[in-house]
């Protein structure tokens, strides 16, 4: 399998000017790689920096140090943490998907349109985009009578599925999932897992930050365990071993 993302020495320190310049470490010295069609889990307690890692790669956070080399579909190597904003926007639109922990949408936009948004941005015809969105919504088990409603009126689990659907609708090459199954029941969790496996089969590299260790072990090829404490932690799962120094 070819490598698609290589992160080295990723560090994020928040500088809180409003608290007199207090520094808070989000994550420190994180290194890992991700291959095409691989699922890598990031596990660890709350506040360990799982989301921070994903947000730094997606550029929602500005990393303080480190590098993240991504091999784009055109073969170019892009250093995501320092790439020009315009390039990052293009990659977000076409190649990198991100599912935040909580869904944030405009309350006037229907679930169908929320899911189809990336397809519109990529120049799809409206009818075609909505057809793809409908297929995905059906697959994820969102009742058909809700499709025209705004996702803000949905239950937590349904919102999370919409959140996932809108990130995967254009089949990104890399998918960053932040607690994708946190508020789902077993059945919905299984559906999301199936979708993850389906994307994996089609070659999407997936990074999942989750504290749901049991579910991570079900879907991930490797698990990266991060913690606050100041020593390298080793965590074994039945497939692979990862080592991370943190803080």
């Amino acid at each position: 399998m070819t490598e698609i993302l290589k992160v080295s020495g990723l560090t994020k320190v928040f500088n809180l000017h409003l608290l007199g310049g207090k520094k808070v470490i989000g994550c420190k010295g994180i290194s890992f790689h991700l291959k095409v069609g691989e699922v890598l889990g990031i596990s660890g307690p709350s506040g360990a920096g799982k989301s921070t890692i994903l947000k730094c790669i997606y550029r929602t956070y500005t990393a303080t140090a480190g590098q993240a080399f991504y091999i784009a579909s055109n073969g170019n190597i892009v250093e995501l943490l320092g790439a020009p904003e315009n390039d990052v926007l293009k990659l977000r639109q076409q190649e990198i998907g991100y599912v935040s922990q909580f869904l944030r949408v405009v309350p006037r936009v229907s679930a169908m349109h929320v899911v189809a948004e990336k397809l519109f941005l990529n120049g799809y015809e409206e009818s075609q985009a909505l057809k793809v969105a409908a297929c995905l919504l059906e697959y994820l088990g969102i009742p058909k009578d809700l499709w025209e409603a705004s996702p803000v009126t949905f239950s937590g689990g349904q919102q999370q599925r919409i959140n996932i659907a809108r990130a995967v609708v254009n089949r990104p090459r890399i998918l960053l999932l932040d607690e994708p199954t946190a508020s789902l029941d077993e059945q919905a969790k299984q559906r999301v897992n199936d979708l993850i496996m389906d994307l994996k089969q089609s070659g999407t590299a997936i990074l999942i930050a989750s504290h749901d260790q049991e579910n991570l072990e079900r879907v991930a090829d490797r698990i990266l365990f991060i913690d606050h404490i100041d020593e390298s932690k080793l965590r074994r799962d039945n497939r692979n071993v990862c080592k991370v120094a943190h803080n």
């Binding site: 928040f14 809180l16 000017h17 409003l18 500005t62 904003e85």
Partner: peptide, 21 residues
């Protein structure tokens, strides 16, 4: 200057932090 989500979620400059807060 930055991506809008970065400015809103991880503002760097003291004034931007004040603005976002």
């Amino acid at each position: 200057m930055g991506l809008t989500d970065q400015i809103l979620e991880d503002p760097q400059h003291p004034y931007t932090q004040l603005l976002v807060s």
